[in-house]
Amino acid sequence: MGELEADKHVRYIMEVEKRKDDFEYVVTEHLRINGAYWGLTTIDILGKLDVADKEEVVSWVMKCQHESGGFGGNIGHDPHLVTTLNAVQILALFDSINVLDIDKVSNYIVGLQNEDGSFSGDIWGEIDTRFSYVAICCISLLRCLDKINVEKAVNYIVSCKNLDGGFGCIPGAESHAGQIFCCVGALAITGCLHHVDKDLLGWWLCERQVKSGGLNGRPEKLPDVCYSWWVLSSLTMIDRVHWIDKEKLLRFILDCQDKENGGISDRPDDAVDVFHTYFGVAGLSLLEYPKLKAIDPAYALPVDVVNRIFFK
């Protein structure tokens, strides 16, 4: 079995920024802050965050802030809860949350909670349990969870639980590993995991492991490295990781590396991207692969970064 090509992955991530004429890069500029969060967190898990220019990153992130307090995906783009969390996560990585006007950002989040406890992603009103997670995670990192109505937020998430033990994006929506991560993560942060039927959900989650050892996100789908994160972090939070074959999953992730140029893909021999590089490395961290920083399964940040915020 091959090893993790840590140095090559760091180099791959640092060079992505230079591929400015690549179509994929160009058309995802509205999501740049999202990509930056993935890339930088990966580098931090690999213990190499110092290769990034802190000043440059922090000042760019702050330029993505909108007058409403929320952050857009890039300079000049409209704010959204998801990109606001990404901004706060990046600042947390660099121990720079103090550059924020906490009231302003938290008020933006508070303003997006609806009467039924759900959260809209932005002022245009789309509702999704993903946005519940993002809001709860973000406002908790800002250490003012009590500014939102936690009880209602939790009730809304619980109303999205399905008979299979999983969660969907709104009440009645299909269970999906990504949504499950969001709902379980939000319940973990708010100390409400007792709402989860751990055996039932653990069962559904462990059935995501297919013959090759990889995990899929829904029944009948192909395995994909990104679910090494969504499924595995959920299993970790509900204490059921031992229900999957960890060794096989580890091998699947390592098989998805581009051993020459760095980066990790969704499946062996596919094209690599930053997104899957993050999920692969984060998954390996949860599997306690040697020499990787431990990652927090709910906040999706290295444990030392989270501790720095809460035990300062």
Binding site: T28, H30, H80
Partner: peptide, 11 residues
């Protein structure tokens, strides 16, 4: 029609 998830344009 060139990039479907450019949120600001939809907004």
């Amino acid at each position: 029609l060139l990039t479907s998830d450019f949120g600001t344009a939809w907004n």
